[in-house]
Each structure stands twice: as C-alpha cells, then as structure tokens.
Design a protein around this nucleic acid. Structure first.
Length: 353
DNA sequence: CAGTCGTGGCT
DNA sequence: TAGCCAAGACT
C-alpha cells in the first residue's frame, strides 16, 4: 500500500514525541486498542477553538469532573455551564455546547455521530471540529485543517498566497498528505508539530521530521509563512459599569442577552459602549466613580470602563439587574472584563465598610 | 465574504 | 510595550 508522502515520518515522530494531554489517548495506548471517548474529544475540541492548550486544561478537568458524560452535561443548568466557562472566552461556544449536548442526549440516544457530515452542523461544530472529531475519535480519514495545519502546509509547500485567499490551496495540499492509515494520530501529529516545532515564529527546523520535504525551509522563507492579509486597526470604546452592594452584601448583576458580546454571561449593569457613553445607573444611589478605569482588549476593539460603586440600603429595587446574595457570588463566574471591574470595585467597597 | 466574538501568553 | 497569536463558528 502506498502511504502518503511524509505521513510515515510525522507518525514516527508522533509516536515518540506526542504531547500528553488530558483528553488524548496517546499513540501507545491507541495502538493497544484504546479508543478515545467521543465526548471528551468533542469537549476538548470546542474548548480548543482559538484557545491555547494551556488555557484549556484546567477548564477541561473541571468540566469532566462536574459532567463526566454528555447526558450529565445535557442535564446541567445553562447558567452553571456559563459560570464554569467564564474566563475562557468566545461564550457562544458554551451556549452551543449545552445545545449540542442536549441534541446528542435527547435526539441521538446519547451517542455522538461517527460521520463528519453528521457531526458538522451540530451546534458549535463546524468544518474543522467535525473533521477533527471524526478523525480523532473514530479514525475516519478526514482532512483536518486548523491554524496549525495551515501554517505547516504553507511552509512544506511554500505557499505564498496570503490567507485567507490561500485556504483552498492549503486544503488541497492537506488532503493530498492525509493518510488512510491512522488518520486520528496523523491529525494530532500535525497539530503537535505546529504547536511545538513548526511554530509561528522561529520554527525549530533542525529537529523537524518534515525538514527534508519542506519547500519553505529550502527557500529560507519558513519564518515568513503563512502570509496574512493586513489587519484593521482596533478602535477604543468607552463605557460605565455600576457595582451596587446592598447592606446584606448582595451584589447587583445582570445577565446579558444571548446574542452579542459576552452573550449569556453575568455582568455589571452599565452604559452602552461607544465613543461617549451616557450614564445609565441601574438604581438611584450615591455613586462614587473610581479614579482608575478597567481596561480590556477584545478582538475588534479596546474597552475602557469607568467604574462606579455604591452601597445601597436593603429594600431598594433596581431598574435593571438582580441582587445576588454574597454567599452565592463567585467572581470566577464572571467574564474576565467584568472580573476586572469587580477587582477595582472591591478595594473601594472594602474601605467603605 | 468580511465582521463578530475573548482571553492570556509571548516577544 | 504593543502587537501577534491560538485545535473556528456563525452570520
């Protein structure tokens, strides 16, 4: 049987250097017949979308401890899942995670589909994740193309067309290299290669199993690939966040609408975020503006939030939001920008008490 | 298709 | 430091 060019070299490298990851069945165990748990593969792949391995590991451990299988996750209250996801970002992933778990649990008998086509289209599963689950969990010979694969392919084949225009060419190259044998190991091998050797800057070509066939290396342009279209500048937006503490210690929080930024997450009531926000206090109080703003960088804008704090008597009703008892409040349930606001407000509230 | 959608680590 | 980047999906 004619193996795909390069597959043998990278699989041999993977057998010796595969990263040990909590969701992974390593090459040795896989060869011994151990199958990955599709639930854990799915959960890890969703968490890893645009997110580093280091950031994911702790979340993965907590999620699997709380919810060991897809039925358990399907039964979880969405608010609890959102709270556990807080800090990981891209919160539509968490909402879709619950939706997908409920579809699998209630409409598919608790069993993940094995086919890429059936996986793709489930909430939160797109072209990459569908192919990755099919390959890793079920050893389907799917073409798995993520950012690592794009970088590795652009270099091995010296593809100088900038992304995203180069995507079709890159996919064709990836398809030509994907082997029929051990497709799950192969997919993870290329991702490990991209994460540890064929890194974005200063790749370690000297120890790369694909050094010999690498066209970019031969041309000395490996560090300049893949090329990417120029990015747009990131504007600054301003806003005002209000942290109200009731006499019993309860804090006024507001759940954000499902659509849009930080959708479905808890946060402090506040103004719109724009060039010149209008004050929008959620209740009448003696608001004290803190001297320092909370700064946070999102993907497409930078936010500077003025923070106003107030102590309010019990019985006061808010126009917006709901008071959360102090005992039930966990800052870790908040998205990072809201946790930054709380960290600033906490100092002032401690002093006032 | 191009914009939206988070965050933390690294250089 | 300020920009770049990460196992993308969705509209």
């Amino acid at each position: 049987m004619c193996e795909q060019a390069g597959a043998a070299e990278i699989l041999e490298w993977y057998d010796r250097h595969a990263r040990d990851l909590p969701w992974r069945v390593g090459p040795g165990a896989r060869a011994a017949g151990v199958r990955p748990d599709p639930y854990r593969v799915w959960l890890s792949e969703v968490m890893l979308q645009q997110t580093t391995v280091a950031a994911v590991i702790g979340y993965f451990e907590r999620f699997t401890a709380l919810w060991p299988d897809v039925r358990a996750l399907a039964d979880a209250p969405e608010a609890q899942v959102m709270g556990e996801w807080a800090g990981l970002g891209y919160y539509a992933r968490a909402r879709n995670l619950v939706k997908c778990a409920r579809v699998v649990a209630h409409e598919l008998g608790g069993v993940f589909p094995q086919e890429r086509a059936a996986l793709e289209g489930l909430p939160g599963i797109g072209p990459y994740t569908g192919a990755a689950i099919a390959a890793i969990a079920f050893d389907a010979p799917e073409v798995v193309v993520d950012g690592n694969v794009e970088r590795v392919m652009a270099r091995v084949h010296d593809i100088r067309t900038p992304l995203p225009a180069a995507k079709p060419e890159i996919r064709a190259a990836a398809a030509a290299m994907t082997p029929e044998a051990r497709p799950g190991c192969y997919a993870q091998a290329v991702m490990d290669l991209g994460a540890t050797i064929c890194t974005p800057r200063t790749p370690a070509c000297g120890i790369c199993p694909w050094r010999a066939p690498c066209a970019a290396r031969a041309a000395g342009v490996q560090g300049d690939l893949p090329r990417k279209a120029a990015k747009k500048p990131r504007p600054v937006r301003h806003g005002i966040a209000y942290v109200a503490r009731r006499a019993d210690g309860a804090l006024l929080l507001e759940r954000r609408p499902d659509k849009g930024l930080l959708g479905g997450m808890l946060g402090w009531p506040g103004s719109e975020w724009n060039d010149a926000p209008e004050p929008a206090p959620p209740l009448d109080a003696d608001w004290q503006e803190l001297p320092e703003e909370a700064r946070h960088v999102f993907t497409h804008f930078e936010l500077r939030l003025k923070v106003c704090v107030a102590d309010v008597p019990e019985g006061r009703t808010a126009v917006r939001g709901e008071f959360h008892p102090a005992a039930a409040f966990r800052p870790s349930d908040l998205p990072t920008v809201m946790r930054k606001v709380f960290d600033l407000a906490r100092g002032r509230l401690e002093n006032a008490r």
